[in-house]
Nucleic acid binder design. Structure first.
Lengths: 255, 255
DNA sequence: CGCGACTTTGACAGATGTCAAGGCTTGTGG
DNA sequence: CCACAAGCCTTGACATCTGTCAAAGTCGCG
């Protein structure tokens, strides 16, 4: 329950994209937070709710869920440890979608007013938060393209590529293998497909030996091949991060 | 070519969501800008480009375009007068998508460094810009849901509802009629459909007397009916805007 | 008047969805 | 250690929505 380590994870994510002074960084690390546990498939923020905390994912996986009248769900974004799921709520405290834990997860709740406070005291920090929200938006835009104009296999491949890069960023050691605690229904909700069709399309990717996915663990067998099918281009994620060049070459080398 | 009026349009948009002092507002109005004309179907920012200006739409319509390897296009967002199309580029100067004029449009180019400058001098302004980017992201998230989990008619209806509210916001007088200078191919690119299918689905909406759409002019004949098909909820757009309540009731009243 | 861009329509094809059943894991309790 | 239940994955047969291709109709403009 010590809030320090989770905030460091968050800080690492932030400084990967923004230049901050010692003082700026200390301000972020000094943010108070209350850790809570959320069980799988439980909403912890509801649609339309007025929120007063931002939620940092410490452990687990969180999705933003939209919904149809017929009950069809669409996951609008996925958040891994170190992500502030709804940093945007600091400036727009009205939840435009429900937040649900995909697997059992630990969340650190950080009061908006504290975040606003350090933001106004440290303009660099505010800029960094702004930037973080922008990257989030860029990911959403990519998802629109993914869901709108790619076939089932490409959609899945793209999602896997994105998550591979994002997980890799928070845990360099894992490389092209990562824990991804979702079931095929979640994949369907991310890609705008049905679970049955996800099953078949994922099966095709497996048969092509591009990826293996057994019980919540993804292993990318052929990075180049998967990127090719997905038409994946890291740029939208990697923005302003010098790491990405390395990533790319590392992946290439391995593939 | 006088940059004052366009910036006022932008300012109006900003203050609709954020509280700014006189000084803050003056800072925004004092932003320098260079107006350029862009012909229909012309890119003015290319994918991957490093940009140094942000682009304010003065007149016309702009889309963010993503693309497939087969050349299928997906419009990721649409921007009307008063929108700063790529305010996000101020903090992430790498263009994640091409920007293209949908119709002949005039753009005001504003240097990033000037925007950053006033942002750091006026934290309220930075917060307002941050907020604006967040709303943009919320729209993208809605589009993911739209394209991922709605059928053709609902997708179109949703797009029309969204644009109606957004146009209404910049020009109260027009109400449920607005100029929307797109062709059916653009609608297809927004909704992830084909032009042919847009034609048929739009035809169905027309036959149901929900909307009429002749040569670049949209008239919503049955707001309530359209909202119903679209499953449209203004909240994600209207955020923090007290106007919205009025809007809603006004539309209801008219429908 | 005639060209070009856009819209509309038809016939047919293909991708994805639906429904339903069976098999596999995993975890739990006896 | 076995048996069972619950959730998840896999598969098949068939339905439906949306896409494709192609042609004709409409509209605005030079």
């Amino acid at each position: 329950m010590n809030p320090r380590p989770p905030l460091e994870l968050f800080l690492r994510r932030i400084v990967a994209r923004s230049l901050l002074t010692e003082a700026d960084q200390d301000a972020i690390l000094s943010l108070p937070g209350k850790a809570i546990e959320v069980r799988a498939n439980r909403d912890f923020v509801r649609l339309g709710e007025h929120v007063t905390n931002a939620c940092l994912v410490v452990e687990g996986l969180v999705g933003r869920f939209g919904q149809n009248k017929d009950g069809a769900r669409q996951i609008t974004s996925l958040h891994i440890p170190g992500d502030m799921v709804d940093l945007h709520s600091v400036v727009v405290p009205h939840a435009p979608a429900a937040l649900q834990a995909v697997t059992n997860t630990t969340i650190l709740q950080i009061p908006h007013d504290k975040i606003l406070d350090i933001s106004h005291r440290h303009p660099n920090v505010m800029e960094a938060f702004w930037r973080d929200c922008v990257v989030d938006g860029a990911i959403s835009a990519q998802w629109v393209l993914n869901v709108g104009r790619r076939n089932a296999q490409a959609r899945l491949a793209h999602l896997l590529c994105e998550m591979a890069v994002r997980y890799d960023k928070i845990d360099r050691a894992r490389g092209l293998t990562f824990d991804f605690p979702v079931n095929q229904t979640h994949l369907a909700d991310c890609t705008g497909l049905t679970p049955v069709h996800v099953n078949r399309s994922l099966g095709a990717l497996k048969r092509a030996e591009l990826v293996s996915m057994t019980q919540k663990k993804v292993e990318i067998l052929d990075w180049k091949g998967l990127v090719d099918i997905a038409e994946f281009d890291t740029a939208y994620l990697a923005i302003a991060s010098p790491l990405e060049a390395h990533e790319e070459s590392k992946h290439e080398a391995r593939a």
